[in-house]
Simulated assay, not measured.
Amino acid sequence: MFSSINIFRLIALLEGVSYILLLFIATPIKHFYNDPQYVKMLGMPHGLLFVAYVSLAFMFKKEFAWNTKQFLTVLIASVIPFGTFYIDKIYLKKLSTK
């Protein structure tokens, strides 16, 4: 059975991977080869995963007892490449082992 923390960890992983693919694969292809198909293909899934990540962060703030600094770190990590991987390692992995 999936726990809420495991669902959040999965969304964080997928959001991070989609962001990396969008930034470092799709966008360079769009600009260097004038081929926007990969940005179009990855843009919508990444956007949905981003919204899910931020929504889950708001939903779980109280449940995980994050203070303001921790919560803002979780939110800011969603716009920094590799940020969600850091959040998983520092915050979420510890919560899933409890």
Rank of each mutant, 00 (worst) to 15 (best):
L14Y: 08
Q70K: 05
S3T: 15
S3P: 03
Y19A: 12
G16N: 13
G83M: 10
F71N: 06
L14D: 06
F50M: 13
Y33P: 10
I11Y: 02
I29F: 12
T97S: 11
L10F: 12
L49T: 06
V17S: 10
T73W: 10
K40I: 14
I87E: 00
L95P: 00
V79Q: 04
V54M: 06
F24Y: 14
Y19T: 08
Y38I: 14
I87Y: 00
D88V: 00
L95W: 01
M1C: 10
K89T: 00
L48E: 06
F71D: 07
G16L: 14
M1D: 13
K61W: 10
N34H: 15
S55H: 04
V17P: 06
L22M: 15
V51I: 15
I25V: 14
Y33T: 13
P45Q: 14
L49W: 02
V51G: 11
N67G: 12
K89P: 00
G47K: 11
M59D: 08
L10D: 02
Y91K: 02
W66C: 05
F85W: 08
I7H: 05
E15P: 02
K89Y: 04
I87A: 01
A12H: 04
I7F: 09
M44F: 14
G43F: 13
Y91A: 04
T27C: 05
E63M: 04
F24Q: 08
L23Y: 11
G83E: 10
S4D: 14
D35R: 08
T84Q: 03
F71P: 07
L75A: 02
I80H: 01
I25C: 07
L95F: 00
F2Y: 13
F32P: 01
T68K: 05
I11V: 15
M44I: 15
F64S: 08
F82A: 07
M1K: 11
T84G: 01
S78A: 13
V17G: 09
F85C: 03
A52W: 01
P45R: 11
Y38C: 08
I80M: 05
K30N: 10
P81G: 03
M59S: 11
Y53E: 06
L13Q: 04
I80Q: 03
I29R: 09
L72R: 07
I20Q: 06
A52T: 01
